[in-house]
């Protein structure tokens, strides 16, 4: 397993993505709320560059006790990675697709050492 340097800590702003290419593999490293997440930049749907789209929070429907519809809210603690090709969504935390648990982005470990951020490939 190789450690690939992504950036110096603090170099990537929050809610940005850096695409790291090592060999034939592209990895999207996402910084969100101070944490780093790394996923293969390859969507299990049709092969789109999954990490190059937007990140959007999940959305929840608000239904009252009498079952009437009230509205919607963003679930800020459940950020999604949205593939730019067809908008398949994946939980940022796990890489698992939001509709089908069998679909997932390949996850990589991210470590920080001596002020530098590495992804393990």
């Amino acid at each position: 397993m190789a450690e690939v340097l992504v950036c110096r800590n603090g170099e990537m702003k929050d809610d940005t993505v850096r695409i790291v290419k090592t060999g034939d593999v592209e990895i999207g490293v996402i910084r969100h709320e101070g944490k780093y997440y790394a996923y293969r930049n390859l969507c299990p749907h049709m092969g789109g560059p999954a990490c190059e789209g937007v990140r959007m929070p999940g959305i929840e429907e608000l239904i009252a006790e009498d079952k009437t519809y009230i509205g919607q809210r963003f679930v800020m603690e459940d950020m999604h990675i949205v593939c730019p090709w067809h908008s398949y969504e994946f939980h940022l935390e796990t890489g698992i697709n939001t509709c089908d648990k069998a679909l997932r982005l390949q996850k990589f470990n991210v470590t920080e050492k001596n002020g530098e951020v590495f992804v393990s490939v």
Binding site: E52, G53, V54, M56, V82, P84, W85, H86, E89
Partner: peptide, 8 residues
């Protein structure tokens, strides 16, 4: 385009 989700 899903409020920007379809980014391209």
């Amino acid at each position: 385009n899903l409020t920007g989700r379809v980014a391209r």
